[in-house]
């Protein structure tokens, strides 16, 4: 879940403790009746009671999650995947203007980009943004190259280069280069 904190925190632990404690109390009250059940039934009843005790904690998790997800704006919701990988969803926007729909492209990412998930996620982001254009592995065999943090001429012989997204803070520039065949 997108908005659930990594650690429950004091309030989360309190809710969990109260719920589980309450379920133990209920089991204690019902114990004389439960004794009539066979062994598997007693174990199941205990598991059921503990499960019911966890429900308030789960409800708290939902509240925490909804706090985050209901406050997302349209951009945050549509680009939530790339954002999780430290990638602005619009990073490759604009490359479509330079790459025809039936052309192929190759992607190259600088190793100096500091976030591994971002380096890994750039190719899928390019694939999504440039749909339905097709990517190829070898820049020399592509019609275009899309690079992040590298000049296109350093990955292929290019006849023309465009800056799709200029450098902004920690984010290196994104380029498109037309490959010369």
């Amino acid at each position: 879940m997108l908005g659930v904190p990594a650690s429950p925190g004091a309030f989360g632990w309190l809710v969990l403790a109260l719920g589980v404690g309450g379920s133990f109390a209920v089991v204690g009250v019902l114990l004389p009746r439960l004794r009539r059940l066979p062994a598997a039934g007693v174990a199941a009843a205990g598991a059921l009671a503990l499960t019911c005790g966890v429900v308030p904690y789960l409800a708290w998790r939902f509240v925490e999650d909804l706090r985050v997800t209901t406050s997302l704006d349209a951009y945050g919701a549509s680009a939530a995947g790339p954002i999780q990988a430290y990638l602005p969803g619009y990073l490759v926007e604009g490359a479509q203007r330079h790459i025809p729909r039936d052309a192929t492209y190759a992607v190259a990412v600088a190793t100096s980009i500091p976030w591994a998930p971002a380096r890994a996620g750039f190719s899928p982001l390019a694939m999504e943004t440039l749909f339905p254009r097709r990517s190829v592995a070898d820049p020399a065999r592509a019609d275009y190259v899309v690079t992040w943090g590298i000049a296109p001429r350093s990955v292929a012989h290019v006849s023309r280069t465009w800056v799709v997204r200029p450098k902004a803070g920690l984010y290196a520039a994104v380029f498109v280069g037309r490959v010369r065949h």
């Binding site: 909804l66 997800t69 995947g81 999780q84 998930p117 694939m127």
Partner: peptide
Amino acid sequence: ALLAVDLWYQPLWAYDAWTFWTP
């Protein structure tokens, strides 16, 4: 029911989902 409410507001964020399942 709670899950349904929560998932109603859930964007597509998991890595495998946005990188290849949904594409």
